[in-house]
Design a binder for these strands. Structure first.
Lengths: 236, 236, 236, 236
DNA sequence: CATGAATGAGAGTTCATTCAT
DNA sequence: AATGAATGAACTCTCATTCAT
């Protein structure tokens, strides 16, 4: 109950503009967590349209009527679910960077953490790609904003590497985009990728190409050192 | 009527295992083209579930009943639509490679053509990501197979570059994956990317990073030469 | 409300394997009685296929959607209706035998009660003949089982008569079959029979032939006595 | 092609008031035989409502459009099919009586032939019970008339037996009704009866009860003689 | 606040019938 | 006379949402 992911999810659900009919703030938060957990699971497995509100209610352990005290429409539930997933990403990455100061290592860790959290909720990631367009325009914007939050975390690492002279004069936005899509693609193309590689291999080989593609000679040297030390750590 | 895209779409629709109630082959092909055109448009804009078969029929200029002479279920229509889009990709790329023999240039052209055809049917590309999971498992496989078709085209170019000593000892599958996701991402993240770059810039900058990431020194030299000649051609 | 027919119908509806979406047992029973009453009436008059679920709902005083909370398919409604009718038969006969111990008289009363209850629900009886085959195989079995229930009641009476030496060495199953078909035929051929006889005449003349066909001399004597006493009772 | 059944069916189809759009009489008759054969088979197996006109057309080896040159509606096809079956019954019985003059034996043969022809087309017999009510009132009358035709054949035999002093003073109509229902019941309850008896046993035991029920002492004696001679014939 | 039965508009699909060829 | 593609009304069933308790 005290995992940061949880807390963050709770906070996300709070800031959602999805107004509830119930005034007790703590209760709202608790019920929405129940709903979101059920919704993420069901929507991810069955898709948004194939899942009924009744099913969500049952899985969340409450009545159909109660659902509508905490979300105005089925689409509100979807929004809650998507934001919950997206915010959990935005929480995991900083967590992985805590105490790490080296820009090279920070970038490596950030991308690695992103891949890892996506791996742990692959179906939910695919859900975001499938279902965002099912939302009203305004809510789509909220999802995109949440996505940008994560993007910024990666972008900051990229920018720091550039300031540190590790990467050459490439568009930070483009480099970020490639790293982000790389992480997402582990979920999107998991059906194909899993046949030929593990997540660790995927991360190592993909990061290698992307970083090599943007690195300065100094950056490459640093990168080689990092990899070597990781190998040693891995071997130990 | 003789555009290769058309022709290919026709062929794709033929090989679909979606059996029709009508025996006249030409008629089936023609009607399915009507249906597919309407379906791609409507599904792309509104999503699969928000679009009714009635709407597809109306847009295709036929009655509800007629639709069901050419597709057994609404999902069949979706399959037809997705395969049509995917096959059109698989047709455009070879078209762009006709007469080009240099491996470096072939890779560049293949990725460029992929980005271009995706750009021209962005909504349909997103549709494939959103809706494939709405299909029965068997039909999902067909969509994945069609996607692999295109993948192979890119993979062949990558492999040729490697044989030619232009790229280093990286996993061809991984490199291909990155190029493919790169092309797809133009559609998937168009809402964000379009703000800061044109498709040409996107292609140039992204390809630069990815190719640099996999190139040998010889490959980098060759790449520089290609870019210079393209610039000249562009300037002329 | 305390008529035995009612009670039996309720019980029958309970034991039906037709699962409802609603948990309140009393409510389910009550709503199903409404539905069954409407269904028997409409199906009997118009036939199963010519009757829409909407019509049944309207006549039952509820919405289309509600119907589907108490029966999973239109065929479930038919099953409920047929079982209700069949079970009402199986209830009327024991009722008519209460307190009667003489085997001869029991047989006479059983057949008479069967004819009477069939007469009172002629259309429903014909419905069973018309519509059982419209049911899925499993549900057809349930209907047949229910029919056998009634058969057994008659068969028991026949067997008792034989034990009592009133009927000769004929196949009990065959004799039962003839009595049962005799009763059913009052509904099946009512269009023709009603022109030339009343139900009482039908029963008297038909029973006379069938019983004479199976009786021992002792049985015939007993039968003559019974008829005489009934005549007297009728005359009084 | 020269079997009497065929001929009769042809005649029946002619006298049907189902008007065709085609004038060539021979052609109409031939096509209707095709249609009827297909319809009896499909309606019997699947039921009237579960069978489509398209299916009937396909099985009859003609196009959907052609069907409508020989029957105005789907119900016309049903009428044609039912009358065909009913008339085939009315033809088989006289056939079985040819050259037989003894009233006792004629009755036995008539009932036997009825059971036999019903046995050979059990599904079609059940079809008549299921589907007659699906017809417009006028056409229902035609079916009933056709049924009465057969009834009359049996009734005549019964009446002759009575004139010959073989049966006692019972209502001829009632006796006929019992014999007819007895024959029909072989098809209607075949699912149950087949488990415990063959058609020959069914006929022997059932006829025994019914005839005993109506016979005079003289009739019983005659009947015993007939049975003995049949046994001998059977044994030889 | 919580419940869950009730609602009814709306979706996909079928098929008897028509009619241009 | 024959064809078979086209039609569209009509049906069954679903499910987001409401509201009396």
């Amino acid at each position: 109950m005290s995992r940061p992911g949880r807390k963050s999810r709770g906070r996300a659900i709070d800031n959602t503009n999805v107004r509830a009919q119930v005034s007790d703030v703590t209760l709202v938060q608790q019920r929405r967590e129940q709903i979101v957990e059920a919704a993420v699971e069901l929507f991810s497995k069955q898709g948004f349209y194939r899942t009924t509100v009744q099913e969500v209610a049952a899985r969340a352990g409450m009545s159909t009527g109660s659902i509508y005290h905490y979300a105005r429409t089925k689409e509100d539930i979807l929004l809650l679910a998507l934001l919950s997933v997206l915010h959990s990403y935005a929480t995991e990455i900083p967590h992985a960077l805590e105490g790490v100061t080296d820009p090279m290592e920070r970038l490596w860790r950030a991308v690695g953490a992103y891949c890892k959290v996506i791996d742990s909720r692959r179906a939910a990631t695919v859900l975001a790609y499938r279902s965002t367009k099912s939302l009203p325009r305004k809510q789509q914007e909220m999802v995109k904003d949440a996505e940008l939050e994560t993007n910024t975390l990666i972008a900051d690492c990229v920018a720091d590497c550039r300031s540190a002279g590790l990467i050459r004069d490439v568009d930070v936005a483009m480099a970020t985009h490639l790293f982000v899509m790389f992480a997402h693609s582990w979920a999107l193309k998991h059906w194909r990728l899993q046949e030929s590689m593990s997540r660790a291999e995927f991360l190592r080989d993909g990061f290698d190409i992307l970083f090599t593609g943007i690195a300065t000679p100094a950056g490459l040297e640093k990168y080689a050192g990092l990899m070597k030390s990781l190998e040693k750590a891995g071997a130990a």
